[in-house]
Design a protein around this nucleic acid. Structure first.
Length: 265
DNA sequence: ATGCCGGGTCCTACCCGA
C-alpha cells in the first residue's frame, strides 16, 4: 500500500492550529506524501473530537495528548506499516505532558517527540518562568536520551537568533526573542542536538510562522519558531530538510508551515 | 497596534492566541 521508493524515514512536523480546521490540508498531505511519521502541534481538540478513526482509515495510527488549555494539544501519526513502541515518558514536567505539550513514542528504533512550548509572558497561559522551566526539562530529557536516535519536533516558541525573524516582526522584548528563552534553546544545541534546518541552511531568512494579522504573510514578516532537533545518531542519518512555505499561501492555511525531514534508513 | 485574523465554544458573541 505504501508508495515509498526507499526505506528512508520521511517525517513532517506541523503546528496545524486546529486539526479540524486543517483537516482538508492534512488529508491531502497524508494522501500525497504518505510520510512515515507526522508530528502535530496545537491540535486544539479533546480526545473525543480527535479524528483517530479517520486517520486509521487513511493508514495512520495516532497518539494524541489533548491540551487542557486553548493552544495546546500534540499528536504523533505513524504509518501503519511501522511498529510503535510506547515508552514511559521520562520528561520530568508531568504537567506539560498532562496539558498536551509533549508526546513521544518510538518507531523503527528512533524516538520521536512532538512538543509545543507555550509562548510565555505576553501571550499564552504559561508564565515566562513556566516556559523556561519546561525548556530546561526538555534539555535534561535530551541529555538522558543523547545516546539514542532521537527527533524532537515542534513549536518551541523561540526565535534562536536575529536571523530567525523579519526585521520588526517582533518587539525586541518579546518572549520569543528574550535572551532567557534563547539561552534555554541554545543549551539544547550545546548539549549536542542538531538544529536540522540550520544544518542544511546555515544562514538566511528561513521562516516557519507568519501571523494572520497585519498582512504579515504578504510582507514576509515571518519568524522561525518551529524546529527539528536531532540527537547525534539521528543527525548522522540526515538526508534533507524542507520548509513547506507554499502551504502558508494555501486557502485555509495554518499560520505555521510544515517542516519535512528525511533520515537515511 | 496586544488583537488588524482565525480558531475555539458557553453557537453568532465572546475568549484566546505567537
Amino acid at each position: 500500500m505504501t508508495m515509498t521508493e526507499t526505506d528512508n524515514m520521511r517525517m513532517v512536523s506541523w503546528n496545524v492550529n486546529g486539526i479540524r480546521a486543517r483537516w482538508p490540508r492534512l488529508m491531502e498531505l497524508l494522501t500525497c506524501e504518505q510520510p512515515d511519521v507526522v508530528c502535530l502541534q496545537e491540535t486544539r481538540c479533546s480526545e473525543w473530537h480527535f479524528p483517530s478513526e479517520r486517520l486509521r482509515e487513511m493508514g495512520y495510527r495516532s497518539r494524541h495528548s489533548p491540551g487542557s488549555q486553548q493552544g495546546g494539544g500534540v499528536a504523533i501519526l505513524v504509518r501503519e506499516d511501522h511498529p510503535i513502541t510506547e515508552r514511559s515518558v521520562e520528561l520530568d514536567h508531568q504537567r506539560d505532558i498532562a496539558e498536551g505539550h509533549w508526546i513521544e513514542l518510538t518507531t523503527e528504533g528512533i524516538t520521536i517527540v512532538s512538543v509545543y512550548v507555550p509562548a510565555g509572558a505576553g501571550a499564552g497561559e504559561l508564565s515566562d518562568a513556566g516556559k523556561l522551566a519546561f525548556l530546561e526539562a526538555v534539555a535534561r530529557h535530551a541529555c538522558n536520551e543523547h545516546s539514542r536516535p532521537l527527533l524532537i519536533a515542534g513549536d518551541f516558541n523561540v526565535c534562536p537568533t536575529d536571523e530567525d525573524l523579519a526585521p520588526g516582526a517582533l518587539s525586541p522584548t518579546d518572549a520569543l526573542v528574550r535572551p532567557e528563552s534563547r539561552g534555554r534553546f541554545h543549551r539544547l544545541l550545546w548539549d549536542g542536538l542538531t538544529d536540522a534546518v540550520r544544518a542544511v541552511h546555515p544562514h538566511g531568512a528561513v521562516y516557519t510562522f507568519w501571523d494572520y494579522q497585519a498582512g504579515a504573510w504578504q510582507k514576509n514578516n515571518g519568524i522561525r519558531i518551529d524546529h527539528l532537533l536531532l540527537s547525534p545518531q539521528a543527525a548522522d542519518r540526515l538526508i534533507s530538510v524542507e520548509i513547506d512555505k507554499a502551504m502558508r499561501g494555501r486557502d485555509k492555511a495554518s499560520d505555521h508551515t510544515p517542516i519535512r525531514v528525511e533520515l537515511a534508513a
